[in-house]
């Protein structure tokens, strides 16, 4: 993202809010619906200040009725509006999944293309702050597996803004996942990555293109959201060990930018995929399969995956730290790959 003179430092949450605000100003069809999105401003800061500006007709607080309000947003989208609806935690999808994967994602297809559902479903993902098994998941693969919707997960503030605007303007339903730990919230651990330069004017970042956040020649590390942040830290540690890692921030799960990964592996000949999701049947397997299918002969070492083992995410602090990949684990795994 090219920066301009009008860039300033914004947190992830402020970048998202600015995107929604600018699109609401531009397009009267855009509105927000969800739990605690009004006066509260979203429990992870996704709508802070918008209620004060747009009032209760365009920033709608809903009852705790996910099926009802996501279903209603689908209806409004079909009628010509461009709703943004917030599912407070991605973990809550269970109570409203029919509306998401059978209705939102399939109505366009089932209607023979007659009906469009230009809806953004934004939802908070991720763990690392002791919120236990039912409030700490990312569930990237659960959504990316299902046809009919785009699934994006921006990491940095500038991408949060650009991809949110792109998602709102997109005619497909888009699930936009934002990571709680990268929103720059006061009550969370403060991470440098949750604050970044963000251009003031509206702009879009295409949905479906990854971003090489660090160039290198010795090993390709693919991550998304918090795992990208950890991978960049790991790359610094690897540098001290004389290893030059390339880090790819996926940004988008559907569409998946396979070309960038394959090009990188053709250069580095080694691949490590890091995922803050369960290991089996996940994003890491999809990327490994992609490289096995289309880039196997570029590899000089077996593909390596780091993910959460197939267990519910522990509530306890030390135990949660055991299961989440971190910079140290990534650096260890990358070293082992290079020294193989």
């Amino acid at each position: 993202m090219a920066t301009t003179a009008k860039s300033r430092m914004l947190t992830g949450s402020k970048a998202m809010v600015e995107a929604i605000d600018q699109e609401m100003e531009r397009d009267p069809r855009v509105f927000v619906m969800g739990e605690d999105v009004g006066k509260y401003g979203g429990i992870f800061g996704s709508t802070t200040g918008l209620f004060e500006k747009y009032g209760p007709t365009r920033i709608l607080d809903t009852p705790i009725s996910e099926t009802a309000f996501i279903g209603a947003a689908i209806g409004a989208a079909m009628e010509g509006m461009r709703p943004i609806v917030e599912l407070m935690f991605v973990d809550f999808f269970g109570v409203c999944m029919d509306q998401i994967y059978n209705q939102m994602a399939k109505i366009h297809y089932m209607s023979g293309g007659h009906v469009k559902v230009p809806l953004v479903l934004m939802t908070a993902v991720g763990g690392g702050y002791n919120d236990a098994a039912q409030h700490s998941q990312t569930l990237y693969a659960t959504f990316a597996h299902l046809p009919g919707m785009k699934v994006v997960a921006p990491t940095f503030p500038d991408d949060l803004k650009g991809m949110m605007i792109a998602a709102i303007r997109e005619d497909n339903p888009v699930i936009l996942m934002f990571h709680k730990g990268l929103q720059g919230l006061g009550w969370m651990d403060q991470l440098d990555a949750s604050i970044g330069e963000v251009p003031q004017e509206p702009y879009t970042v295409p949905l479906g293109r990854s971003r090489i956040v660090r160039e290198g020649n010795d090993v390709t590390i693919v991550g998304i959201q918090m795992m990208t942040v950890h991978a960049m830290k790991a790359a610094e540690q690897l540098k001290e060990a004389g290893i030059d890692a390339e880090v790819i921030d996926l940004r988008s799960l559907v569409p998946l930018d396979r070309e960038t990964i394959l090009r990188s592996v053709a250069k580095t000949h080694r691949l490590l995929v890091v995922d803050e999701d369960y290991q089996s049947y996940g994003m890491s397997a999809e990327i490994a399969a992609t490289v096995a299918e289309a880039g196997l002969y570029d590899l000089e070492a077996p593909i390596r995956r780091l993910a959460i083992p197939d267990v519910p995410i522990p509530y306890s602090d030390p135990l949660e730290n055991f299961v989440l990949p971190n910079a140290e684990k990534i650096a260890e795994a990358a070293k082992a790959l290079v020294n193989m």
Binding site: D36, G38, Y40, D61, P63, I64
Partner: peptide, 10 residues
Amino acid sequence: AISLPRSRQT
């Protein structure tokens, strides 16, 4: 319900 008053719940 967090910030939503009962009058806006039902």
